[in-house]
Amino acid sequence: MAEEFERRSPGDRKSPAKPVHVGRRTVLGVLALAGIGIAAGAKIDKALGSSISSVSNAIGVPLPGDDAFRFYTVTGSYPVIPADTFELTVDGMVHEPLRLRLADLRSMRRTQLVHQFQCVTGWVVPDVHWEGVLLSDVLERAGVTPKATALRFFSADGVYTESLTLSQAQLPDILVADKMLGTNVTADHGGPVRLYVAPMYGYKSIKWLNRIEVTNEVVPGYWEDNGYPVNAWIGGVAQVNVVP
């Protein structure tokens, strides 16, 4: 193949050389690069993510392979809720329905995690710092009634919903988070309070959380109605991330 190129040296230009299949080579080259990218992308992401991120932060445009969050909202905008008026309702099959303000959450037992945020479509942000109250602590305070089996989560945007089983909710790495990335959860990240479900894909970590309803059936949430699995274990298998 290479000699076809060489035959095309300037001195040879006048003779009607055999056509060179540049188009085919271009196609194969692009497809080969794509194949390498698919196979090695996760490793490239891990190795180069932070350097790519410094470039993408500098230019203000997300770049392939960076460690930045992608921002999702399922409505035309997103709710901006003042911290001092925020309330999280816990109701349904509980002994004592709760209305927790931010100060209430801050006065409860605090839990911190450092763990990735993994989106089901593939992007991942490594080593995110999360802080808040364990979901199981919130449920314990409300007192779940014996027949309850599931939870529904509601977002202040009015559309986004999520679900967990009650046994999943007992895991030690599911947070009602009011801090992430070392600061209060910002409105674009779903603040003032969002869920963080470490062992599951990102869509489970509902943003702008304002209500937890304890029920006796799993009602699929927004993304689950859109075709994503209800059991969103990362990698397809249940796991618990023990955090020091």
Binding site: V27, V30, L31, A34, G37, I38, A39, A40, G41, A42, I44, D45, P62, L63, P64, G65, Q118, V120, T121, G122, W123, V124, Y201, P229, A232, W233, I234, G235, G236, V237
Partner: peptide
């Protein structure tokens, strides 16, 4: 063609393929 393949992986691959989905996302982006 590459965008089609990577897009299908991102949207339709089983959740156990997450490593491939990460690579597909890189390529798709």
């Amino acid at each position: 063609v590459a965008a089609l393949v990577t897009g299908v992986i991102m949207r339709f691959a089983p959740s156990s393929w997450i490593t491939w989905a990460t690579g597909a996302t890189l390529v798709h982006d």
